[in-house]
């Protein structure tokens, strides 16, 4: 048992939490989006736009806080394109999400070129905080934000009137309308909040996690997150363990490289995709039997037309 709390183990858990954080934020946002009956694959592109905007603003202003806010704003704007296409124009949600993904990838690569190779300092260490310093020193500001948001979103979704309204819209827009709710408004909000959190995720990645910008920095984290929403059963509380599947595998493969395991780093780097996909596969059987908590309004999208 002593091994479980050894310094190596604690630093591994901290590393897993740090690399889970961007994914966790996207899982939380996409969970809310899907809870109102909309799927958005564009989160990957929104993360990229959030990451480059956050990085550029941090570099220009010297303030990582301003960077995170700017990243959230930019990604929310991009998510509005998905809302407009799918909710106003009635386009296929999968296709519309992919259009946003392409746009985000193109825009971030195009406007990100001058920032390749630049360095920023980010938030700095929290090791100086009294009492909690030794623990917090291993984490970072965005990890704390994500860990706080998880229960907040859970409590909001399951216990408040507005949370109930959002869930009602995702189950049936007809009965939500009968309850006096404006389903279209809530679906717009669901997409935009998902956009906001994906932007925070992207900015957390470039400003707080890597402190640099490279093209396609998110490398599929947003898409993994969309898969993990299903693993987490559209439940914000389960978003953390689901996101740890990604972060844990990433931390594990980085750790294995330093151990000098005789396996190619390129093979090990498939783990953050292979493990979430495998868990999605393994848990799908149960999802099929009991519905697994999929919002009714999503079923038409998921089963294909």
């Amino acid at each position: 048992m002593s091994d479980l709390f050894s310094p190596e183990m604690l630093s591994f858990i901290a590393a897993a939490l740090r690399s889970s954080t961007p994914v966790l934020l996207v899982v939380l946002g996409e969970t809310l989006t899907q809870r109102v009956g909309v799927i958005n694959l564009g989160v990957e592109g929104q993360m990229l736009v959030g990451a480059i905007t956050g990085f550029a603003v941090t570099l220009a202003s010297g303030s990582p806080t301003l960077g995170l806010l700017a990243g959230m704003f930019a990604a929310t704007l991009l998510s509005a394109v998905h809302a407009l296409l799918s909710l106003y124009f009635g386009a296929n949600q999968i296709a519309s999400g992919l259009a946003v993904l392409i746009l985000g990838a193109g825009l971030s690569a195009f406007y990100g070129i001058p920032y390749v190779g630049e360095k920023i300092s980010g938030f700095g260490s929290m090791a100086g905080v009294p009492l909690l310093g030794p623990l917090l020193g291993q984490l970072s500001v965005s990890v704390l934000i994500a860990l706080l948001l998880t229960p907040l979103i859970g409590v909001w979704l399951y216990t408040t009137r507005t949370g109930l309204a959002w869930r009602a819209v995702g189950e049936s827009t007809e009965s939500a309308r009968a309850m006096g709710i404006n389903p279209l408004l809530i679906q717009w909000l669901g997409v935009l909040v998902g956009g906001l959190l994906s932007g925070l995720a992207g900015a957390a990645l470039s400003v707080d996690y890597t402190s640099n910008w490279i093209e396609n920095i998110s490398s599929g984290r947003g898409l993994v997150a969309v898969g993990l929403v299903i693993v987490a059963r559209w439940n914000p509380y389960l978003a953390l363990p689901a996101a740890l599947l990604y972060g844990g595998s990433e931390a594990l493969y980085l750790r294995m490289q330093t151990w000098g395991v005789g396996v190619s780093p390129y093979l090990l780097s498939t783990l953050p995709y292979v493990i979430p996909l495998s868990v999605l596969v393994v848990t799908s059987g149960r999802l099929r039997q009991r519905g697994g908590g999929m919002p009714e309004g999503l079923k038409a999208v998921f089963k294909g037309s």
């Binding site: 394109v81 407009l84 296409l85 106003y88 124009f89 009635g90 386009a91 296929n92 296709a95 519309s96 992919l98 259009a99 946003v100 392409i102 746009l103 985000g104 990838a105 193109g106 825009l107 690569a109 195009f110 070129i113 093209e215």
Partner: peptide
Amino acid sequence: MPSSSAVILQGILFAIVLAVGGRWRER
């Protein structure tokens, strides 16, 4: 102009086609 301009233009094209071809006109 960097080669990613082609990616942006593809994204714009996709968005336009989805908007024009969507079901909004039924309303």
